[in-house]
Nucleic acid binder design. Structure first.
Lengths: 105, 105
DNA sequence: GTCATATGTTAGCATTTTCTAACGTAAGGA
DNA sequence: TCCTTACGTTAGAAAATGCTAACATATGAC
């Protein structure tokens, strides 16, 4: 779990995750979203994220398409929501608050 | 937010947070829960956690008592729950699943 | 086979993190 | 005042992280 949380504790990686949240993208395409970082760096992040289970890889010819592994993100959310004692109560309150539009989802 | 998440991405710090979640403890007392780490290391973690807002400090004579700042943890939970697009739907499902006992809170 | 495209891998460096050991400080009791 | 207790701070070493540059591999087009 530490590894997963640590991986999410980085804006760049969260941005990658959002890019491939609902559509799969190739490594080059993903890298192009980050003008200030090398393709190499992104490639390393992708393989890290794949290793911890946050990304899924599909190979097709010379391409490799990545997409988010929603289940793992949900695992982290559940973990954090449940880690501290009275969090069930707060989770329910949060869900209600979101429904009422009191906080932003 | 990165800083907060990163701080939580460490089992030792999460353990500290749990120790002072519902009662305040002194630094020495906290350190005694970690036989394998120096008091100095714990002291540094405490001041880090205080800096990022996860802990609150109350001084009394020669003692310094720490306690968890629930609000900041809630902020992280909200952030993660809300960060990805369809998470509201999943949050609601999660809350229901927890109520039905299908997953562990 | 030859070349271009898409992508991973490796080596090396800089930065950050975390820990220990030694030292500093402040409050309270004898 | 002197000593103890409870802590923090600093310096320095060790390990982890993230990035760039250079090189390797594999697929497909011609």
């Amino acid at each position: 779990m530490d590894t997963l949380l640590k991986t999410l504790a980085d804006e760049k990686r969260r941005e990658i995750l959002r890019l491939v949240w609902s559509e799969e993208l190739g490594a080059t395409e993903i890298a192009q979203h980050f003008p200030n970082v090398t393709r190499t760096a992104i490639s390393q992040q992708l393989s890290l994220m794949k290793r911890v289970g946050l990304l899924n890889e599909r190979r097709a010819g010379t391409h490799r398409f990545y997409r988010a592994q929603h289940r793992e993100v949900l695992r982290v959310q559940q973990f954090l929501n449940g880690y501290w004692s009275d969090s069930l109560q707060r989770l329910k309150e949060l869900a209600e608050a979101i429904e009422k539009g009191e906080v932003t989802a």
